[in-house]
């Protein structure tokens, strides 16, 4: 589904990713760990093709095509979707209008909003006055309406209370077809700082970003346990 090859990225002349490589197969969920400022968000922004992230070298291959130079809207149209950690407020643009713009065939935004218990927010300006949990639900609702094949999630658990976390966790499971044991088509790359999302969504692989590059790859639960026991410094010694 996705192959990132030796990716080096800068923003306004400052290098923020260094020689990063990872590979996600169809149906696979990949968990990305790392402390604040390690480059996690930069990596998924680069995969999404957000404008100010400049690829200096390396490639992004998606469904067999080199998309390194594609603008983000082309990537979105071809099935890449992103949940922002801190999305902007867009005054005057109603959530309902946004869903109409992004919906994929066969998806009814109103039904999905009901599923997420979010119909009261459809006539509100996007993210205006939303709480942390409401922002995440709005992001998830947009993603479910988009129905992407590759889902990029930036810290879905941050700022979310325990009740909302269950709702969001289940929605992510649905997005990633976690209830299908075979023929899973959707892939995911999930950033987590705390690891709480692992309580809701099973991941196939995990890696740690330290100092803007990937240091450690392996079983996500083992990685998380290692980080909890020894901190991120331990990752610098890991040769897996």
């Amino acid at each position: 589904m996705l192959e990132v090859q030796n990716l080096t990225v800068s923003v306004e002349g400052k290098r923020i990713l260094e020689n990063v490589s990872l590979s996600i197969d169809k149906g696979e969920t990949y968990m990305l760990f790392g402390e604040n400022g390690s480059g996690k968000t930069s990596l998924i922004m680069s995969i999404m093709g957000i404008g100010n992230y400049q690829v200096e070298s390396g490639k992004i291959i998606y469904k067999g095509e080199d998309i390194t130079e594609w603008p983000s809207y082309e990537r979105a149209k071809h099935g890449i979707g992103i949940m922002f950690q801190r999305p902007p407020t867009i005054r005057g643009l109603k959530l309902k209008q946004m869903l109409e713009m992004v919906k994929r065939d066969g998806k009814d935004p109103l039904e999905l909003a009901e599923e997420l218990n979010f119909t009261d927010f459809l006539d509100r300006d996007i993210n205006l006055g939303f709480s942390g949990g409401e922002i995440k639900r709005a992001e998830i609702l947009q993603l479910m309406t988009q129905d992407p094949d590759l889902v990029l999630l930036d810290e879905p658990e941050s700022g979310v209370d325990i009740v909302n976390m269950g709702l969001i966790g289940n929605s992510i499971r649905e997005l990633l077809q976690k209830d299908l044991h075979r023929k899973r088509e959707k892939s995911g790359l999930i950033i987590t700082h705390s690891g709480y999302i692992l309580d809701y969504v099973e991941a196939d692989k995990g890696c740690v970003l330290v100092n803007n590059t990937i240091w450690c790859t392996g079983n996500p639960h083992e990685i998380m346990d290692g980080i909890r026991s020894h901190g991120y410094e331990e990752c610098l010694t890991c040769q897996r």
Partner: peptide, 28 residues
């Protein structure tokens, strides 16, 4: 705001569509 344009582009809108959507919202 550039971040608003980027946000809408990541949802599949071209840069021109994103800008006019934001402007329409501003006028709404």
């Amino acid at each position: 705001a550039q971040e608003e344009i980027y946000y809408l582009m990541s949802r599949g809108l071209s840069e021109d569509q994103a800008t006019s959507t934001i402007v329409r919202g501003f006028l709404n």
